[in-house]
Nucleic acid binder design. Structure first.
Length: 107
DNA sequence: ACCTTGACCCTAC
DNA sequence: AGTAGGGCCAAGG
């Protein structure tokens, strides 16, 4: 509840959900957005840019298990530290998160 | 109210 | 793999 201040409640909601993601688990931008009952993966990404510093932004990834743009290297460090299941991939980053196991959703 | 930006998503070439 | 285009939403000027 409320210690967040700044901009709309949307940002608060996003940060709160991300904060609920347990270590070793991840959630896609799209899934987070759908929690609000409305698409808006871009809006979620923007919240990460503005207030992402306060949450485990690395636990929020793109669709398909791809790490956040421009932060794939840092994100991988956190994944390995938390034991997040990763998989080798042909992607430029050379890896992707195993959504089959890491995919998480709030109750 | 209008326009631009952004750590997005999907499809197509 | 990479680029291009269109579409979604929220915040700020």
């Amino acid at each position: 509840m409320a210690v967040f201040e700044r901009s709309g409640e949307y940002s608060e909601q996003v940060l709160e959900i991300v904060a609920q993601i347990p270590a070793g688990r991840v959630m896609t931008y799209g899934d987070v957005a759908w929690v609000f009952g409305r698409p808006g993966a871009r809006a979620v990404g923007m919240v990460m840019r503005y207030r992402g510093s306060e949450v485990a932004w690395w636990r929020v990834i793109r669709a398909g298990g791809h790490p956040p743009t421009g932060h794939a290297d840092v994100a991988r460090t956190h994944y390995e530290a938390e034991g997040t299941p990763l998989l080798p991939a042909d992607t430029p980053e050379g890896y992707r998160i195993d959504l089959r196991q890491a995919a998480w959703s709030p109750e």
